[in-house]
Simulated assay, not measured.
Amino acid sequence: MLTSKQHELLVFIDARLRETGVSPSFEEMKEALQLKSKSGVHRLVEALVERQFVRRLPNRARALEVLRRPGQPVVEGAMGGQAPVSRTPLADVTDMGAARARLRPEPVVRARSIPFVGRIAAGLPIEAVEDQEMLDVPGTLLGPGDHFALQVVGDSMVDAGILDGDFALIRRAEEARAGDIVVALIDEQEATLKYFHREKGMIRLDPANPAYQPQLYLPSRVRIQGKLAGLLRRY
């Protein structure tokens, strides 16, 4: 049995995954649930993990997977303990045979090559570099559409799980909604990775680090080039 807030968070996470393929940040969860602090979000996520409604994906920042909806059963895993019926977000399972079929090892994922077009600031804007190299990316990190990769420079998006040196996987787009993490090209010269908002006829680009201030621009100065679809990190 989930509490109302746990259920609300589960629905929000699933909706965002279906729409963008990227888990919402803790800041976005806090705003969506109208909570006062991110510590409350952490507690709700932990509760969903413990109850096997979501799981964290290893080696990926801010990566959550929805395993089942309220009321779906869990079945005994091959190694003992409980395993969710479905490994795909909110997939319907009609019988035990389908459940066991979904627990089989997943097929090898083929890589996709996408353009690597340089660096992007997660701090103050820097010049967008156009190197046009290619980067091999696991296909599971990319949804439909045209994609490119940029390497993150700076720490202004750390609270969104985006670190200096990460490779941001960007789905090309020319429009964005409030709360999207976007690549914004400013004055056709400088690119930055930020949360997108509109404020009193201006474009506001918000960091995810309290050490940085939001940036305000006239709409004519800002062009959206894409939205964050995933992250790669090397160790």
Rank of each mutant, 00 (worst) to 15 (best):
T3G: 15
K5S: 14
Q6S: 14
E8M: 08
L10F: 10
L10Y: 05
V11A: 14
V11D: 11
G21H: 05
V22N: 01
V22K: 02
S25H: 11
E27V: 12
E28P: 03
E28L: 13
M29W: 03
K30D: 05
A32T: 05
L35E: 02
K36Y: 12
R43D: 07
A47Q: 13
R51Q: 13
Q52L: 12
Q52T: 15
F53W: 03
R55H: 09
P58Q: 10
R60A: 11
R69H: 10
P70A: 14
G71Q: 05
V74N: 04
V75K: 03
G80M: 09
Q82M: 10
V93P: 04
T94V: 12
R100H: 14
A111E: 08
R112D: 01
R112M: 02
S113D: 08
I114Q: 02
G118W: 05
I120A: 03
A122V: 03
E127D: 11
V129G: 09
D131L: 13
D131G: 13
L135H: 05
L135E: 06
D136G: 12
V137F: 03
P138C: 10
L142C: 02
L142K: 00
D146V: 11
H147N: 02
F148P: 01
F148R: 00
A149E: 01
L150N: 02
V152E: 02
V152D: 02
V153D: 06
V153E: 09
S156E: 04
M157H: 06
A160Q: 07
A160T: 11
G161R: 03
G165S: 05
F167A: 07
F167I: 13
I170F: 04
R172C: 11
E174C: 07
A176D: 14
I181Q: 06
L185N: 04
L185V: 06
L185E: 04
T192Y: 04
Y195L: 09
E199A: 13
M202K: 11
L205N: 03
P214V: 15
Q215T: 10
L216P: 00
Y217H: 15
P219N: 06
S220T: 12
R221M: 06
K227D: 01
K227S: 01
L228K: 00
A229N: 01
L231E: 01
R234E: 07
Y235D: 08
Y235C: 11
